[in-house]
């Protein structure tokens, strides 16, 4: 079994590196792939990182070609050299990952097609697999095609197993399966967030207010975000603070809005909003606060 795996390593690793190299060398939008990776920081810029990514892809393709064809072209020595080259490539990947993990722990490795998760065990497992596969290829007993020819069934099964491991490590197949399972669970057992009471959230009232004419009228006075809110007698009250007047005459004011507690953007696109501006110190209404705004444009105000 182990000897079979060893002798098939050049084929499995060669195919893997050919895919990975092709994606790096010919993939669309390489800038997107290197953005946020440790490679970007190592190469000091997106452009140089893109060139580096292409170069790594070319190297992977070369090693893949050597792994797949060396025994035929250069005999057993070719197999040793190509296997050693693959192991060295894996070792270089590992070194890059260690460096990236130490210097930029939040960045991703940019190793494979979807490699924008932070450098973690999966990335190290991928690099380790290349080292082990390279070492196995270097000591393979003969060309891989002879092994396939002699043990077609076992070889096919083993290669399928290798494919599954590669799919998990390199293409996140397990996560896709997990998502499919979670979707199925929702379908079978129902949506876990079903049955929430149907009330208009405060955020919806704030949204309605911020899109209303009343907000346009009061916006120059309002300085704060929402300070307080409460419901009473079918009304929702929203309180802000602000400043009325300029510099010396500036007064700190409360700006109060009252809206229908059941209204939101879907049910009331042009809501009637009651607005009052109160002096914070005296509690007296500031009657001219909104007039400043009505001078800006012709706002219809109904009292």
């Amino acid at each position: 079994m182990l000897s079979l795996l060893r002798d098939l390593a050049p084929l499995a690793l060669g195919a893997l590196l050919a895919w990975s190299g092709a994606v790096k060398l010919a993939g669309r939008a390489p800038e997107r792939r290197v953005a946020g990776t440790a490679l970007e920081r190592l190469a000091n810029g997106v452009e140089r990182a893109t060139v580096a990514l292409r170069a790594v892809g070319a190297a992977e393709l070369l090693v893949a070609a050597a792994l797949l064809t060396a025994p035929a072209v250069a005999g057993p020595a070719g197999a040793v050299w190509s296997g050693t080259a693959a192991a060295l490539l894996g070792a270089a990947f590992t070194g890059y990952l260690v460096h990236g993990r130490v210097t930029a722990p939040d960045s991703s490795c940019g190793c494979t097609a979807r490699g924008d998760e932070p450098i973690g065990p999966r990335a190290f497992a991928r690099a380790g697999l290349v080292v082990v596969g390279g070492a196995a290829s270097a000591v393979a007993a003969g060309p891989w095609w002879e092994t396939v020819w002699r043990h077609p069934v076992a070889a096919t099964a083993l290669l399928a197993g290798c494919g599954a491991v590669a799919a998990v490590l390199f293409a996140d197949l397990d996560r896709r399966l997990l998502l499919a399972l979670r979707r199925l669970r929702l379908r079978v057992f129902g949506h876990p967030l079903e049955g929430a009471p149907k009330v208009v959230p405060v955020e919806a009232s704030v949204e309605l207010l911020e899109r209303s004419l009343a907000w346009e009228a009061a916006a120059p006075v309002v300085r704060s975000g929402l300070r307080d809110h409460w419901d009473e007698d079918g009304w929702r009250f929203l309180r802000y603070t602000g400043t009325h007047g300029t510099d010396r005459n500036a007064r700190r004011v409360s700006v109060l809005f009252a809206l229908d507690v059941h209204a939101d953007l879907d049910t009331a696109s042009r809501p009637a909003v009651r607005v009052a501006v109160l002096d914070e110190e005296t509690g007296e209404p500031v009657t001219d606060a909104l007039e400043d705004v009505t001078a800006r444009t012709a706002l219809p105000i109904v009292t």
């Binding site: 009304w235 909003v273 219809p300 105000i301």
Partner: peptide
């Protein structure tokens, strides 16, 4: 105070 304020629609 809020309910006694101006009503703005339009």
């Amino acid at each position: 105070a809020a309910l006694g304020g101006a009503t703005i629609v339009g």
